[in-house]
C-alpha cells in the first residue's frame, strides 16, 4: 500500500517536470510561404485602402465635360473678337 501511495506521490510531484518537458516542443509554424504574383485573396495586415467608389467617376466626368466645354467656349469667343 505504502508503495502505491509513494508511486502516486512521485507521479504527482513529477507532473510539473513532465509539463515542462512537453513545453520543450516549441512553436512550429505550419505555413511560412510568401505570397507572390497571382490573383490573390484580399489580405492585408496594415490599414486598408479606401475605395472611393463610382461616385468619383460621375464627378470627374462632369467636371471634365464642364471644364473643357467652358475652355473651348471662351477660346472661341476670344478668337471671334
Amino acid at each position: 500500500m505504502k508503495r502505491v501511495i509513494a508511486m502516486i506521490g512521485l507521479f504527482i510531484m513529477s507532473l510539473p517536470t513532465m509539463l515542462l518537458m512537453a513545453q520543450d516542443q516549441g512553436t512550429y509554424i505550419d505555413n511560412l510561404g510568401a505570397q507572390d504574383s497571382s490573383y490573390l485573396e484580399e489580405v492585408q495586415l496594415a490599414g486598408a485602402e479606401q475605395a472611393s467608389g463610382s461616385n468619383t467617376t460621375v464627378i470627374i466626368i462632369v467636371v471634365a465635360v464642364v471644364v473643357i466645354a467652358a475652355a473651348v467656349f471662351f477660346f472661341m469667343k476670344k478668337k471671334k473678337k
Partner: peptide, 10 residues
C-alpha cells in the same frame, strides 16, 4: 509589415 503589409501568415 513595412516589407510586406500583405504577408497573411503573420
Amino acid at each position: 509589415i513595412a516589407v510586406n503589409p500583405r504577408y497573411k501568415n503573420a
